[in-house]
Design a protein around this nucleic acid. Structure first.
Length: 112
DNA sequence: AAGTTGACGGATG
DNA sequence: TCATCCGCCAACT
């Protein structure tokens, strides 16, 4: 048989990775995809989070877009962005007015 | 069935 | 530094 179960669990792996991000830390979509064994699946991570819903109790706020080599950025828009910023600040993550976050200070994985 | 979309990322101008 | 384009992969129309 083919690896159909891998397909089914792809989404679950993404959730599993996000669930293991410690408070006060952030990961980029690309990093989550990499840890979830989906090397170029950064867009799939975004899709998974968008379709997840809040009942999963997923720390979605810890997933940010990579803005530059050492900076992350809140990728949500509207009210979600406001909520994400509040949740992060509440965890001790410093977020710039523009929504930028220092990956060196708060990134879960080392940058270089 | 084929084109469009998206909570992205990297390269280029 | 900011704006734009192309690539990636599944879901949606």
């Amino acid at each position: 048989m083919t690896n159909q179960k891998e397909n089914t669990s792809r989404n679950d792996r993404i959730y599993a990775v996000i669930r293991e991000i410690p408070p006060g830390c952030v990961l980029t979509y690309g990093q989550v995809a990499m840890l979830a064994e989906t090397p170029r699946g950064h867009r799939l991570v975004a899709a998974a989070l968008r379709g997840s819903g809040s009942l999963l109790r997923l720390p979605w706020q810890r997933v940010v877009a990579k803005h530059s080599r050492k900076k992350g950025r809140i990728a949500t828009k509207g009210d979600d962005a406001t909520e994400q910023r509040a949740l992060l600040v509440r965890e001790g993550v410093s977020v710039d007015p523009a929504g930028l976050i220092s990956l060196e200070a708060h990134g879960w994985l080392p940058i270089d």
